[in-house]
Design a protein around this nucleic acid. Structure first.
Lengths: 250, 250
DNA sequence: TGTATCCGATGCGCGAACGTATCGGATACA
DNA sequence: TGTATCCGATACGTTCGCGCATCGGATACA
């Protein structure tokens, strides 16, 4: 259990550090209705730094291939800091993926709000638009390769551990549903609709995009953009087959 | 280097290594034009047993999560046997995946030869037929869950190591091409064709099937069949969108 | 059946990583 | 300014897995 009640053996020093005044308490990160005691500033920053470091290392070497010590070193801490903040490597990983997925979901919500402002009027261009949206939403703006690896790692973990499987499945489902909504809305705006169940179609698109991204990253690094462009090339064609004119359109 | 030239600390015997008169010549598994010295019977069986054991363990706990010792124990050997047969865990894993992929390819070839005997005459039924073929070919007849996990593990490895990436990409490509051929042939028989590039369409189908299988295995074990059936449900619909009547058909 | 030659078993030392128990400095509040 | 509290650093002992060097039993041929 991290954050154990500090039962200390009262040292003799008592050196008082006038220190740099406040930094902590008043600025508690009050998280509305979070159950656990709110984290102090300091604490939250070290957590963040540990998570950042873990992101790179987990992506590059896998969960099992990364030692806790390596994470701490990369973050500029020692193991003591880690065990003070997390119970185990697994918990660290889950916290990390949750943070990343939250980011992803937020970008999707942003897309929902902002994209409809640009109504595409030509039905023919719809497939490319849809493909572009899928690509834009799926792609981690900052670091797609890492995201791809982390996701694969998470999938693997979920496939083995029923506990994380349910969480993973829920996340995927809500993401998928939201994306399906967005795409349906965009299609409606251009007088089209999915020719099959929208969620199923979204599922297909996600699978296709993910697979294409993976293939792209299998090639030599550096040509990522090029390869991905090529691989992504056939996505519009696929979208073209998944949509059809909406008879209910004006 | 496994199989090192037995440079034993030349004991007092000084028995002149009478040339390398080979020990198990007659039973050599002569593999036509394989480069390396053919393996003896005994050796090949222990290799096989090690691979079998590794299959289960790698699938369940991952490559990094599995110790060489665990593999040896599961196979009924000790580490000595392992190091006599393989250089490293990675090499073991690659040998394993190659064996499995060879199996998969063989089943695909069998499908190529045997399926055309059953010409489906009704065009409407084609989608289900295609979906069934995809499912039949993709599925490991014996142990689909394990295959799913192993494949994910292999992907991850390929994403990180350019060396295995090229091998992986080649394997995937040849598999995909062959499957595309098969599907195209079947479609032709029923007077249909892919509406988009056949290879692209096959790519989509593989992605979709793989994704569906993964989702199925995320649910509680035991209901595999049920869940998979549900998940697979929308595959025919997808196929229906990917094919169209062939104008060149009689 | 004898025997040279593999092949896998066994034993050992080493290093990495883990988890805990404890310490010292920094922080917030009186 | 004094002081209680928290947080991260440090220092252990332990366990695990690795890889090598060596040995004994099995195997195929003469």
């Amino acid at each position: 259990m991290y954050r154990k009640a500090a039962v200390r053996a009262a040292p003799a020093d008592s050196g008082s550090m006038s220190g740099v005044t406040t930094d902590l308490d008043p600025t508690r990160v009050d998280r509305g209705t979070e159950s656990e005691p709110p984290l102090s500033r300091r604490r939250e920053r070290t957590r963040e730094r540990l998570l950042d470091a873990a992101y790179g290392l987990f992506a590059e070497h896998g969960i099992n291939g990364t030692s806790i010590e390596a994470v701490c070193e990369a973050a500029g801490f020692t193991r003591g800091a880690f065990y003070s903040n997390f119970d185990s490597k697994d918990e660290l990983f889950l916290a990390l993926t949750e943070r990343e997925i939250r980011t992803r979901m937020r970008s999707l919500e942003v897309a929902v709000e902002h994209l409809p402002d640009d109504p595409v009027r030509d039905g023919v261009i719809a497939p490319d638009t849809i493909a572009a949206i899928v690509a834009a939403v799926m792609a981690d703006p900052r670091d797609e390769r890492r995201w791809c690896l982390m996701n694969a790692e998470l999938e693997l973990l979920a496939l083995r551990d029923p506990q994380v499987a349910v969480r993973f499945a829920e996340q995927e489902e809500s993401f998928r549903d939201e994306l399906a909504d967005l795409l349906t809305r965009v299609l409606t705006q251009v007088g089209m609709r999915f020719a099959i169940d929208p969620v199923a179609a979204t599922r297909v698109l996600i699978s296709a995009y993910t697979g294409a991204a993976r293939d792209a990253f299998l090639g030599p690094a550096g040509e990522d953009a090029v390869l991905r462009a090529q691989s992504t090339d056939w996505l519009p064609a696929l979208v073209g087959r998944l949509v059809e004119p909406d008879p209910a359109a004006a």
